[in-house]
Amino acid sequence: MPRQFRLPLHAPPRWDRESFVSSPTNVDALDALDAWPAWPEGRLALVGPAGTGKTHLARDWARAHEAVVIEAASTGNKPLDLAALRGRPLLVEDADRRASFSGEGGDTVDDETLFHLINMAGVDGGSLLLTGRLAPIAWEAAVPDLRSRLNALPVARIEEPDDVVLAAVLRRGFEAAGIRPAADLYPYLMARLPRSAPAALAAVAALDEASIDQGREVNKALALAVLAFGEDDGEDGDDEV
């Protein structure tokens, strides 16, 4: 029976700009990040679907400017020392998935904290980069003053992957797994996979597992057997196994 996609295990990531593939889907976001420190009031929201490179670009920006990195979706952390963060470049990852209030877990970024972080941006040389899957206007906000701040944030958007980006995601996934697939596997997969980076990485993981389990080459024949593409024209049935 063909396997269904599963989420892959990720290799240690690289966050440098040199390993990021630019395309029309992300060039506006690149330009917006490179405009720092001339962001309006020192603020920018970087948004886009999962797996499109938000964290890659955000972490590269944070490294280049020695920014403090804050994981908004993390729980059980101590409250932020806002006074110590004043005047510094800040990166708040997954700001759209933060807790709306600080509960017993001591969440790092609740609504009140995010409100203060946004107000601090642009003061004493400080700046704030926020990442999320949706534009800030769609983020939940229980604090009315935060709602108005989110609605006013400038936004840099990364779109769904095009062929250039999807090919790069596949290539890096195979490289991380130590696989050298036949060159014709790339266009074969790109023509059939959902247009998302998580789907591409899931396909790589499934092919890697099947190749090890079955002792087979990673090629179109294996992809057809493992990924349930449902080929019905038979043109790929002659691949050597």
Rank of each mutant, 00 (worst) to 15 (best):
M1Y: 13
M1N: 06
Q4T: 08
Q4V: 08
R6K: 11
L9N: 05
S22F: 04
A29E: 03
L33G: 03
W36H: 14
A38W: 08
A38N: 07
P40H: 11
G42W: 14
A45P: 07
L46Q: 05
T52L: 04
H56I: 08
R59T: 07
W61H: 05
A62Q: 00
R63Y: 11
H65P: 03
E71W: 09
N77S: 14
N77A: 15
P79E: 10
R86Q: 12
L91C: 03
E93W: 03
R97Q: 15
R98M: 11
R98N: 06
A99K: 07
A99T: 06
S102H: 06
G103F: 11
D107E: 15
T108Y: 11
V109H: 03
V109E: 03
D110M: 10
D110R: 03
D110E: 10
E112N: 10
T113S: 13
F115V: 02
L117N: 05
I118Y: 12
N119F: 12
M120G: 08
V123N: 09
V123T: 08
D124G: 05
G126Y: 06
L128K: 00
L130P: 10
R133F: 13
P136L: 07
W139G: 11
A141Q: 01
V143L: 14
V143P: 01
V143W: 04
P144T: 01
L146K: 00
L146S: 06
N151K: 07
P154L: 09
V155N: 02
A156C: 07
A156D: 06
R157N: 04
V164S: 15
L166F: 07
A168Q: 14
R171C: 12
R171L: 15
G173N: 10
A176W: 06
A177H: 08
A177G: 02
D184H: 02
P187F: 04
Y188G: 06
L189K: 00
M190T: 01
M190A: 03
R192K: 05
R192N: 05
R195E: 04
A203R: 00
V204E: 00
E217V: 10
V218P: 07
L222Y: 15
L222M: 14
A223V: 11
L224S: 15
A225N: 12
L227F: 08
G230F: 12
E231T: 04
D233F: 13
G234C: 07
E235I: 09
G237Y: 00
E240D: 13
E240G: 12
